[in-house]
């Protein structure tokens, strides 16, 4: 279902990695996830080739997106948030909404799923931070233009970096446009058991894994979310450095060197 996610482990030593489902074809047993290689765990996942397998996967987790006929809906995707907003946009379109999609990337070389987004949208706006695709600006600039041109926007869905979701929510708040954001806090079990994914929504603590991951963007304490996402920066850095140096020296040492120490 749109908005839900899975958790997977690549190997026995690996983290439980939460990733949003971009598409699913249950009859064929196909699950599509799109991820960006950022830290060790996602880079490790990136080393797998076609035909390789992961250790285990659990899902679907989280509550599905609330889809109904809102009227005109703007779907905003930032970077790898785009594949995640795709099933939401498709479901909104199927529910009869006018869907305007805005997707943003740093430059034109990393534009993702524009054709797919176009196929489920009445209008698609692609923006790049550096203007290399000929449309310079952030997704918020594009959203502002849509609102300013007099479009009556009834609902906004936004998925992407926390700062983007924060800015989108800030932009829509004075217009009183209900805005749903999909949060990506640190998760561990992702079944409501540990509480690491707690977020402050309107002064109430919620667990993103079971109460979310989608929340009212006008109520989310984004600053707290950003702070909590920094909890393990030093460890993440160390993990990544050791992984990369092991990769450079020709892959895993098989239990003798730094990667396995």
């Amino acid at each position: 279902m749109p908005g839900q996610f899975v958790v997977l482990r690549v190997n026995e030593e690996g983290e439980r990695i939460p990733l949003t489902v971009a598409d699913a074809i249950p009859d064929m047993g196909i699950l599509v996830i799109v991820f960006q290689e950022v830290g060790k765990s996602t880079k490790l996942l990136g080393t797998l080739n076609e035909g390789d397998s992961i250790l285990d996967l659990i899902g679907p987790l989280g509550l599905p997106s609330h889809i109904e006929m809102f009227g005109t809906v703007v779907c905003v995707g930032g970077g790898v948030g785009t594949p995640e907003i795709f099933p939401v946009a498709r479901a909104l379109k199927q529910a009869g909404n006018k869907v305007i999609s805005i997707i943003g990337f740093r430059n034109k070389d990393i534009i993702l799923m524009a054709d797919e987004m176009k196929s489920v949208s009445d209008e698609l706006i692609v923006a790049t931070d550096d203007g290399s695709n000929g449309n310079k600006g952030f997704v918020t600039d594009m959203l502002k233009k849509v609102i300013d041109r007099g479009e009556k926007v009834d609902h906004v869905f936004a998925v992407g970096p926390v700062i983007m979701m924060k800015m989108v929510s800030k932009l829509t708040e004075p217009y009183k446009i209900p805005t749903v954001v999909s949060l990506n806090p640190i998760m561990l079990d992702a079944t409501g058991m540990c509480g690491v994914c707690r977020v402050d929504v309107g002064g109430v603590t919620k667990f993103a894994c079971v109460d979310g991951p989608e929340f009212d963007g006008h109520k989310v304490d984004f600053d707290m979310l950003m702070a909590r996402l920094r909890t393990y920066l030093p460890e993440e850095k160390r993990s990544l450095e050791e992984f990369e140096s092991a990769q450079k020296s020709g892959g895993c040492c098989g239990g003798k060197g730094a990667c396995c120490a």
């Binding site: 030593e13 690996g14 983290e15 439980r16 060790k40 765990s41 490790l44 561990l188 079990d189 058991m193 540990c194 393990y232 460890e235 993440e236 160390r238 993990s239 050791e242 396995c260 120490a261």
Partner: peptide
């Protein structure tokens, strides 16, 4: 406890969970 026990974070960085 889940980090330390189930995910073996006490063996970080051999295990990835910090």
């Amino acid at each position: 406890l889940t980090r330390s026990n189930l995910m073996k974070a006490y063996l970080f960085p051999k295990y990835d969970t910090p």
